[in-house]
Each structure stands twice: as C-alpha cells, then as structure tokens.
Design a protein around this nucleic acid. Structure first.
Lengths: 213, 213
DNA sequence: CGACTATTTGAGCCTGATCAAGACCGGTGG
DNA sequence: CCACCGGTCTTGATCAGGCTCAAATAGTCG
C-alpha cells in the first residue's frame, strides 16, 4: 500500500502506527480536549481549524495525503481537525516531548525538518493574510491547493474542492461573498474555470502573476 | 553569564557556539543568500522580515533574548534578520537536516519542541492577521510584546519599542497611519500610555479584552 | 539651532464586509 | 421523471474600516 511510503518518509515503522478511518464530517481530534496523538494522513482531506470565543473561525490548513497533523504538544488541543472526505490516517503516538514514541535520533531529525518546512508554509500563509488583497489571496490559494493536490494525487486536469466556500473564506480571512465574487472574476478573465466543487486552471502563469509574492 | 543558560535550554554546549555581536541596523542573515547558521539571541532585539517583489514587506517576528532564529533550512534564506539594537547572539552551526551539528537525540527533541511552539505562535499570529480588526491587532501586539519582553528582561513598568511604526505596521498587516491612530485611541481610552519609543500598560485586562481570541 | 526623519493628524476614497435576494444543486418522495 | 425542499453558492446594493494622499508636529542628531 502506497500509504506506508508516507510512514517511511518520517521514519516510523508500521508496528508503531495504527491505521484509523474517519467518516466525512467526523473529528480526528478536537480543540480543548487532551491531545491524543499525531496523525499522518494517508487518504482524504482534513481541515484544521480553531474556533474563537466570539464565533469567528480560523482555518489553519487543509491537510492532504502525506501531511502530518497534531504535532504541537500542549495540555489541550489548540485546534480541531475534521474529515472533509472519508479519511484514512496513521495514528502516531507521541511521548511527552512531542516526538514519536520509539523514533530514533535520525527519525526525529526528519520529523524536525518536516516541522520547519511546515513553519515556512505558515509564514508564507501569513504573508497572504497580512499583505495580500482578495484577488491575490484567492489566486494563490487556487495555485497552492492545486499543487499540493497534484503532489498527493498525481496530475489531474481538474482539482476538486473538498471544502466549501465558508472553509476557504475562513482560511483566507475573507467572507464567502468575496470568495465567490473573486472566483467569478478570475473565471471571467479566463484564468480558471470554477465550479461549485471543482476547478481547473487555464492560465497557471497568469494566476501565479496575480498570486505572486 | 546568563546567556549560557539559553544554550543549556536547547542542549548546545558552549564549545559548539560562537558568540557574535551585531551593531544596530546590521544584518544577522540576509534573504536570498545561502543560509549560514541558526542564532540564539543572547541580548538585544532582532527583526525577521521578508521583502516581496513589489516592495511590500512582511515582518515575521521580533526575536528577543532566548529566541532562536534561522532554523528553517532551504537553499536560500527566505528571510532577512536585522539587529534593531546592538545584539549578541550565539551562532549555532547546523548540518544539512537542519539540526545543530553535534547535538544528541535528546537535544534535538528539545529543539523540536521549541520549533512546534514557534509553529503554534505562528498560527496565533495568523489569527491576528486573518481575523482581527486594527484595534484588536494593536492591542494583542502590545500585550504580547510586553509579555515576551518581560520574560526576557524581567518585570519593568515601561516597555520599550525597539522597532519603529513601520516595523509594527508590517508585522500587523496595517499601515503606519493606522498603527498611530489606533495607539492614540487606546491611549485616550486610558488602557495604555504610548510614547514614540516606549509604552506602559495601565489596564492589562481591558487591553486583553480587546485583543482577545 | 537647523536639517532630517519619524510620528501624528486630517480628508476623501476604495476594497471588502454586511445585508438581502435570487439561482443553483443534490437529494427525496410522489 | 419531475416537483419540491434545504442548503450552498452567486449576485446586487449599500456601508464602513482602513488605505492613500497630504500636511503639520515632534523627535533626533549633528
């Protein structure tokens, strides 16, 4: 099974990783509860989000096959993770310093490298949130997600939206109306074709030029 | 010297860490150049920022004594780091997987934990950028920075601004004018006293209530 | 003291939020 | 097969928070 190659990539052996299945809509872990473990997504899409006191929601990331979630260790989970589609994931038990139980120094090194690149991704997303206008945000999301989707699922012409507009809005710090309007705009410019639950990029360069930075 | 306790915290021994001094305004490392090493700030303040093609700037963080910078490993530095004040820092050489040369598994574990908490900080800042209004952003910055300043320099009534308004603006995704106006507002509400290069918090709870989330 | 820069303040505008319909889509049952 | 229904998405009109442009003021350093 291809999934075990993901395990190899972080240096966790099969016998330390239980595979777990989640139906669409089910929580993988929940904000406020005691942390259970990290999960290595094997198939499907997971949304990682935090709910603020006043009801606003902040979406931190969309995790695809090959992605690790639930690494940061605190007394309570800071985020909820939910399956946007049926999900298969390896459950990886962690010891109290946040490294996988039964991992070698070399493996921790690989995990560490992964974490620093997640950190880099987080900083990139901050730029999106702090400095970009609506059109730029949506364009970079469409490019970014397509790229990640393809690296997880292979080259496909069309990319699905496993998430809804609300999810995208909360991820990009915009409203659903602005997401919709902006996508329509990019559509009319002939850069992409956007449908309710999938899209296709016609002009990657043009889109990238807008998403830039 | 107190600084070496910072080294202990990440499990790097004195002999693997050269101390280096930077004058105010000097780069610690520069965007686009080949990465040199990580630095553990020992005294002073460092600003970590990225310049976008179109001239916009994004400030990722302000690093104080005890903070580590330059950990993420890529072919080229993604950020520049500059001394906002005179800075002393330990230079920590890294091997290609991004872990300190000559660190034990246990030490890498500690470093790893530090990185995950930096990641958590990054996610919190994303909330600030994606979901908060100007007043909320400035309030949380003032609280946050005061807290970090005090944990690095001890309890002081007044907190200095080692950075200028432009730096704060680029950190919060706002303009200098909005920073200025908002601070004046918080000032008039009696929550803080803001001067050009220092401030004092009068009502931590009230300020926190605004900065919330 | 004077030149220069950083910060504050002011006025008007624009982007994206809000409020409000309307269209579309998928599923269900007659 | 199609009418209906609930939710999601799109589109429209208006509003407001924060940006832009502009000028005054306050610091800073020689």
């Amino acid at each position: 099974m291809a999934c075990s190659s993901y395990l190899d990539a972080i240096g966790v052996s099969r016998e330390h990783a239980d595979i777990q299945r989640f139906e669409k809509g089910r929580p993988v872990f929940e904000q406020g509860k005691a942390p259970v473990a990290a999960f290595l997504i094997c198939s499907g899409t997971v949304i990682v989000a935090r709910l603020l006191e006043d009801g606003r929601r902040y979406v931190a990331r969309f995790a695809l096959a090959g992605d690790l979630i639930g690494l940061s260790r605190f007394e309570r989970e800071r985020f909820s993770a939910h399956a946007l589609t049926p999900v298969e994931a390896f459950r990886i038990n962690l010891n109290e310093n946040g490294t996988p139980a039964a991992a070698s120094a070399h493996d921790v090194g690989r995990l560490f490298k992964r974490t620093t690149s997640e950190l880099d991704g987080a900083y990139s997303h901050m730029i999106t949130l702090g400095q970009k206008r609506a059109e730029e945000r949506v364009a970079s999301f469409l490019i970014d997600f397509a790229e990640r989707w393809r690296s997880a699922h292979g080259e496909t012409r069309e990319i699905p939206f496993p998430m809804n507009r609300r999810d995208i809005a909360d991820y990009l710090g915009l409203t659903i109306e602005t997401i919709s309007r902006t996508m329509t705009l990019l559509n009319k410019q002939g850069l992409v074709a956007v449908y309710p639950n999938r899209y296709e990029i016609f002009d990657p360069k043009g889109l990238a030029a807008i998403g830039q930075a």
